[in-house]
Simulated scan of single mutants.
Amino acid sequence: MQRRSLFAAALGLLTLAFSQATLAAEPLKIGFIYPGPIADVGWTTQHELGRKLVEKTYGDKVKTYFVENVPETADAARVVRQLINQGCTMIFTTSFGYMEATAKLAKQFPKVSFDHATGYKMDKNLGIYQTRFYQGAYLMGVLAGKMTKSNTLGFVGSHPIPEVLRNINAFTIGARSVNPNAQTKVIWISSWYDPPKEREAAETLVSQGADVLYQNTDSPAAVQVAEKKGLYAFGQDSDMSKYGPRAHLSANTVNWGVYYVKKVGDKLAGKWKPEDTAWGMKEGMIEVSPLGSAVPADVAKIFTEKKEAVASGKLEVFAGPLKDNAAGVKVPAGSVLPEKDLWSLTWYVEGVQGSIPK
């Protein structure tokens, strides 16, 4: 009888050890949802490269899932629930329009770790991550200001949210830092990815006198228009030089992988916590691609000096004096736009024409 009890106890311990080993061997399941298609350039593509870097870094410790072309509607919540039902205990929602759905789901699934890109709502299990994309946009503006002959710059806008307005303003500040006569015209297309609309907007801007084009949209349409018309343009999110080798001056690119690797490592170590993260050139999240052959040596020198100053923190993009385009002082001389105002920015800087759509 005693032998049977000892045997049963030993068997129970073995079963428990096996169960614990099995649990320990279970990979961390991570879900990503993307607003656009995975192509060879653009916002979604850069997030996808970040997901792949997570897999490369952590191997069989993780299992990742992704869903592309997820509308920024109630569909987002449905897709995230599906990922959670597949066992995902970590979710990355990669666009501003997913914010409300992510905030609601975080309350419904308190054991899941959520990270939302470019939003502002946080919770006990919901962190946010932003980029200082405006740093690269400023540098693109420096090139635009030196390369324009018409002093008219064209910008294809997606949605009039602070993230995009920061880039329009930073681009214009950069241009006017080397060319005070530079002006920026903006056309909004109400989409992150719509190549026909992007192309039409770029062509309209050219017809209005723009000879340098930039965009906060995902396709290389603006670069292609510039190439065809003998003008200049920039890549956004990714290097787009192959779509306009003569037109492409540089690109404002983002490396999401550095953030994803850090947060997944925290989760694996049991140290994940919701954070408000804003990384830029200093952290290696924002990078600019090599300069195109059309950029003269003297312009390249100015660009390099400013790039080093931005990366080191010596040059603040939104430093005063700054006015809005109605001549109202927004940042006095000697001051820098406060962080909270930067992330909730809702005005055009001096040099941007027109008004922001409601």
Rank of each mutant, 00 (worst) to 15 (best):
L6T: 04
A8S: 07
F18H: 03
F18R: 02
S19T: 11
Q20I: 14
A21Q: 12
L28K: 08
K29G: 02
G31E: 01
I33F: 02
I38F: 00
G42K: 06
W43K: 05
R51F: 01
K52L: 15
L53M: 13
L53I: 02
V54N: 02
N69E: 13
P71S: 14
T73W: 06
R78S: 15
V79E: 12
V79K: 00
V80Q: 00
R81M: 09
L83Y: 02
I84D: 00
G87Y: 07
C88L: 10
C88I: 07
T89R: 14
F92V: 05
F92T: 03
F96P: 01
M99C: 02
F109M: 05
K111V: 10
F114W: 07
F114L: 09
Y120Q: 11
K121Y: 12
L126I: 03
L126V: 02
Y138M: 09
G141L: 06
M147T: 00
T148P: 06
K149Q: 13
F155Y: 14
V156M: 11
I161C: 07
E163I: 14
I168S: 04
I173V: 11
R176N: 06
N181F: 08
A182K: 03
Q183C: 04
Q183G: 03
V186M: 09
I189D: 11
Y193S: 12
Y193W: 13
E200A: 15
A201V: 05
S207K: 12
Q208T: 06
D211K: 10
D218T: 08
D218P: 01
K228L: 10
Y232Q: 05
F234K: 02
Q236V: 08
M240C: 10
K242L: 07
Y243R: 03
Y243F: 15
G244E: 12
S250K: 03
A251L: 07
N252R: 06
T253V: 12
V254Y: 06
G257R: 10
V258Q: 01
Y260F: 15
Y260D: 00
K262T: 01
K263M: 12
K263E: 14
K267G: 01
K273E: 15
K273V: 08
D276Y: 14
T277H: 01
M281W: 03
K282T: 05
E283R: 04
E283P: 03
I286M: 13
A294D: 11
A294K: 10
P296S: 09
A297N: 12
F303K: 03
T304N: 12
E305L: 13
K306P: 00
A309E: 11
G313R: 11
E316A: 12
A319Y: 00
P321Y: 06
L322Y: 03
D324A: 13
A326L: 11
A327D: 15
A327I: 06
G328L: 08
P332Q: 12
V336I: 15
W347D: 05
G351Y: 06
V352F: 09
V352K: 12
V352C: 10
G354S: 06
P357H: 13
